[in-house]
Design a protein around this nucleic acid. Structure first.
Lengths: 299, 299
DNA sequence: TGTCAGCCATAGAAGAATTCTATCAGAATC
DNA sequence: GATTCTGATAGAATTCTTCTATGGCTGACA
């Protein structure tokens, strides 16, 4: 025999725990003669008596005790290997930390989480909300596995996949001059006062970009901390704003005092993407998530 | 397959080290197909690909790397077990717990421990002192490996070997009527007041047995806790006593105020024996000890 | 481009090890 | 003294591992 066998160590540990060959054998789901013979073989191989066979009780010799301690460690390591294998064998299982922009998360998640849970039931999603800069930082630090944000960003050691393009829509007070009709042209916005998010939100920059092109000016001394604040300010007639379309769908579509109008083509949009470390071991799971989000975000 | 096999882990580690199936197989002293097949089996069992088979080089996958780390630990533990076994395989080595009667230990040990150490240098003797009943109890419980006590005892699952017969001697105050001359006959003791040990010491029962036969009576309201107490009480003239001969040899022979007289034949004696569990794995070492004690106790 | 060498996978047979059931022997218990 | 409990033994069936021989694929080299 060239190698100790884990099975034999299992038998030995069972005897150590049971103090009884028959019960140890039962615990190992083998017959008593099998366990006896294997233990005897192990003793012969090692050249030491491991078990003292009393008439009512089997107990370990000193050598047996010391060896059982090592044996337990080996069996644990063996379990570890199985554990590692299980974790690695199903790339679509385990914990995955996903961050989303504050201007995306609350509006996108209700649309996709049911589908994610259904399609990837063994994936435990941990959800976070960060603005672009801290999100990239935490991504690179390994604090999160993937992030949903507005492209483009500075990829560097990162990999990205475009998920969907989200149009902006115009939100105006109900009694506003632009509060009626179907699509609205960006040119119609010239001269309007626009309300924007505070610094740090990429949506602010994207909206500013649109505004500067069409001749709108930002309402001074006002910065909203969230889209919901923004929406309420619009409702109270302070000005107009640009919202990402998902923020006007579903329960968010029926805000009192606010009229939402889509833009005529070509509508201003922002690209939304999924970003992860190029070296990430969770690539497969991340791509599965990307597929589901891309398919159902705007659909 | 119920268990990962160490052999397969060895193959995996060999591939990790060699980066090459053929060389790994050679390192394991098996054919290349054997190693390939077993690794494939291991991968199937674990449900993960462990080795990336390149055209010129075999490298480990991430799962493989993580598992190899555990595998190395297991192989090391396996070596440890072999090492422990080798160290324990010498039946005359290791720890052996030996108990002696309080009326034997202090007088026998100085005579035999130097010889035990010389003859059994790899044996680590742990010495204990117990009276007969607790000694047998601890023996049966496996707390000690062997015991030196006065025979006969109720052997039951135990095995015994007679070591030597120890005569009793008479100890009297220096000015006592029996304090002079060579041997003394038991019949001369009639009417004497004898001091005895407290309950639990088998020596007490043995001495009582002698006393009752020769017409001595025990000093009431006195029970010594040790032979040395007894000896001092004799020296102070309270009475006489019986001592085991070894307790009057060497440094114990020159007690002031006490005269020791051997008995004329047939002298009363007690048999001293070594007792151990019949199932004990240390039988060989115990018998070696018995041989040495028997040879040098009374010599 | 065709041949060769290196590398791993596959196939089938031989051999070894493990397992089972049935039974035995020794010790403790009633 | 019969019975029960415990571990050891025996022989057959099964399962696993190993071997040799060979195939298929890829890269190197003339």
């Amino acid at each position: 025999m060239a190698d100790i066998k884990l099975r034999d160590l299992r038998y030995l540990v069972a005897v150590a725990d049971a103090g009884h060959f028959g019960r140890a054998a039962a615990a190992c789901h083998v017959s008593q003669p099998t366990l006896s013979a294997q233990l005897k073989k192990l003793e012969a191989y090692l050249g030491v008596q491991l078990v003292e066979r009393g008439t009512r009780h089997a107990s370990l010799t000193t050598a047996g005790q010391r060896i059982v301690a090592r044996a337990r460690a080996m069996l644990e390591a063996s379990d570890d290997i199985a554990q590692i294998a299980r974790a690695c064998s199903d790339p679509l299982a385990g914990r995955l930390r996903l961050a989303l922009l504050p201007t995306i998360g609350p509006y996108l998640l209700p649309r996709v989480t049911p589908r994610l849970h259904k399609a990837l039931p063994r994936l435990e999603l941990m959800l976070y909300e960060y603005q672009t800069a801290p999100m990239l930082e935490r991504l690179r630090a390994g604090d999160i596995d993937a992030g949903v944000l507005a492209l483009p960003v500075d990829l560097d050691g990162l990999e990205a996949l475009r998920l969907y393009d989200e149009p902006f829509v115009l939100a105006v007070p109900a009694e506003h001059r632009l509060g009626k009709g179907g699509t609205v042209r960006t040119a119609d916005l010239a001269g309007e006062t626009v309300l924007l998010l505070e610094d740090g939100h990429c949506l602010r920059d994207q909206a500013l970009d649109v505004c500067s092109r069409v001749g709108m000016h930002e309402k001074q001394d006002f910065r909203a901390t969230s889209l919901e604040t923004l929406r309420q300010m619009v409702a109270s007639g302070v000005g107009v704003t640009l919202l990402p379309e998902l923020a006007t769908r579903g329960v968010y579509g029926a805000a009192r005092g606010v009229v939402v109008r889509p833009f005529a083509k070509p509508a201003p949009t922002r690209g939304v993407g999924l970003v992860w470390r190029r070296t990430s071991a969770r690539r497969e799971a991340i791509e599965a998530i990307a597929k589901i989000i891309a398919a159902h975000a705007m659909g």
